[in-house]
Simulated assay, not measured.
Amino acid sequence: MTISASLTPTNRRIVWGVRALLALAFAAAGIAKMAGVAQMVQVFDAIGIGQWFRFMTGTIEITGAVLVLLPATVFFGALLLAVTMICGVATHLFVIGGNPAPALMLALMSAFVAWRLRPVFQLLALR
């Protein structure tokens, strides 16, 4: 298994910068959810599933923030965060209202990292 495309030093720095931003954003959001910040409690009350969903989302965000920093797990972390934010966009559009742009931007950034660092499996040639 290899990384999808060889990255130039400039591209490598860009991807690292996006990874760092994602880690900071998702760690902060996840910690806020886990700590029970009033705004987060209100948002998840509006969603209507229950506060357990706030804890689950916070756990997913913190886990994704860690995974996106580790070279061996960056693809899976970025993919996890992209899917989480796609669900966040849908929640804003169809359930709670509000501006889905921040969630959309985080989804796009996560998808960018997942795409740039996707694994490529090489098949062995049969002789």
Rank of each mutant, 00 (worst) to 15 (best):
L104D: 06
G48M: 14
I47N: 04
V113N: 01
L106G: 01
L81R: 02
A103T: 09
L124T: 14
P102W: 04
D45F: 02
W52K: 05
T2Q: 15
G77Y: 11
T8E: 13
P100I: 04
L67D: 00
A25W: 07
S4Q: 14
F76E: 06
V37M: 15
A65W: 02
L69G: 01
F76M: 14
G17A: 05
I62F: 04
L67K: 02
L24M: 11
I62E: 00
A5M: 10
A65C: 07
W115N: 06
I14L: 15
M85F: 01
L106T: 03
T2F: 12
V15Q: 02
A78F: 01
M40W: 04
V83I: 15
Q51R: 07
A78H: 06
T84G: 06
L126V: 12
T73L: 03
A114Y: 02
V95H: 12
A27R: 08
M109F: 13
F53K: 08
G77Q: 06
L67R: 03
A5F: 13
A20C: 12
I96K: 12
M109W: 05
L117D: 03
L69R: 03
K33H: 07
F55W: 13
I31T: 07
P9N: 00
T91D: 11
N99R: 12
E61P: 13
A38F: 12
A90K: 06
S6G: 07
I86K: 02
A20P: 05
I49H: 13
V43P: 01
F94M: 15
I14T: 00
M109Y: 08
R116H: 10
S6M: 05
I47K: 08
T8H: 13
Q51N: 13
G48Q: 07
L126W: 11
D45G: 04
S4T: 12
F55L: 15
Q39H: 13
G88H: 03
T59K: 01
L80F: 06
L108E: 07
V89T: 08
F53W: 15
L24P: 01
I47H: 04
L80M: 15
W52M: 15
F121M: 13
G48H: 09
I96G: 08
R118D: 12
A78K: 07
A103M: 11
G97R: 07
N99W: 01
P119K: 03
G98D: 13
G88A: 15
F76I: 15
T63E: 03
I3E: 14
M105K: 09
F75W: 10
R54P: 02
A125T: 08
F75I: 03
Q42D: 06
A46T: 10
G88T: 09
L104E: 09
A5I: 12
M105C: 10
F75N: 00
L21T: 11
A5D: 12
F26G: 05
V37T: 05
S6L: 07
G36F: 09
W52I: 13
V18S: 10
R118P: 04
Q122D: 15
A90M: 09
F75P: 04
M105E: 06
G50P: 14
L126D: 14
A103F: 08
A35W: 03
C87D: 15
T91L: 11
A32T: 06
E61F: 11
G58P: 00
